[in-house]
């Protein structure tokens, strides 16, 4: 079980709800993935535009909704967004994300830490999207974050675990769940993250933008399970030279 704050989840796959072609496909993908945590975002309402009923199908699925603060460029904006999101969804769970630069969407570590410190004091369950920086992750943990969400690669880039060496240190040191967020482009990337000992992964683009999001959601779910089982089983050590797995005797030497 994945334990975050006061809740337990049997699935270690978190899904982002963005970029799906249709809400119905998103719901089917969520079901196929078995995920129990789904992220959502906040936007200014366009008056006169029809409001889709996004929430009632999700609320019937018995999943924890995780609003994010995407769009915030500073700690101040993120705290404002967090308060809006808490009221909109009636949950104090929050994915904190502050990325001022639209080209790479790299999280601002200073603003993120400042916001996290204040949001924890305001009673939020804070899951910060952050750089794969072991010192920052430790500081976010000390600030009272319920988990840390370091990036594998840039958001939506599908490049996999570019930050692998740093993730290994983060996972080794962490006392809270480490959820690898962003950049996971294939089920094999998710499996690799879980093999490193990640508590969970968050996937959005790789599922939503695939040719068959529902099937891909299922594939990610299996990969996450396989990677987690492998981590628990204890991977065999890697070597720089061959190590025979059949007996190398000279029983053919008489020919």
């Amino acid at each position: 079980m994945l334990h975050i704050a006061n809740k337990s989840f049997s699935s270690r796959l978190l899904l982002g709800s963005g970029k799906f072609a249709h809400p119905g496909i998103m719901q089917q993908a969520i079901q196929a993935s078995g995920c129990q945590l789904v992220t959502l975002a906040l936007k200014r309402l366009q008056l006169g535009q029809q409001q889709d009923d996004l929430l009632s199908p999700l609320q019937q699925m018995n999943i924890q909704l995780l609003p994010n603060t995407s769009g915030a460029k500073t700690a101040k904006e993120a705290i404002f967004a967090a308060e809006l999101a808490r009221d909109a969804l009636q949950t104090n769970w929050l994915k904190l994300e502050i990325h001022p630069d639209p080209r790479y969407l790299m999280p601002d570590p200073i603003e993120t830490l400042m916001a996290a410190e204040q949001l924890v004091k305001l009673g939020f369950v804070v899951l910060p999207y952050c750089s794969a920086d072991p010192v920052l992750c430790k500081r976010l943990e000390q600030a009272g974050c319920a988990a840390v969400m370091p990036l594998g690669a840039a958001i939506g880039s599908n490049q996999g675990l570019q930050t692998r060496a740093m993730l290994e240190i983060i996972i080794e040191q962490a006392m809270v769940p480490v959820i690898i967020d962003a950049g996971l482009g294939a089920p094999s990337h998710a499996a690799a993250a879980m093999e490193l000992g990640a508590a969970a992964v968050l996937v959005n683009t790789a599922i939503a933008s695939s040719q068959n999001p529902v099937a891909m959601a299922g594939a990610f779910a299996q990969a996450v399970n396989a990677g987690h089982m492998a981590y628990n089983a204890g991977l065999a050590a890697a070597h720089s030279h061959a190590a025979p797995s059949s007996p190398l005797t000279d029983f053919l030497a008489t020919l």
Binding site: G18, K43, S70
Partner: peptide
């Protein structure tokens, strides 16, 4: 931010700037 439970009784004032936000899909 004005909490939902206060909307019923919240009295608007002249020149108030009211901003509406809603939940949308997103990662």
């Amino acid at each position: 931010v004005i909490a939902k439970r206060l909307w019923q009784e919240y009295q608007l004032q002249n020149h108030d700037q009211i901003q509406l936000f809603h939940i949308v899909t997103g990662g």
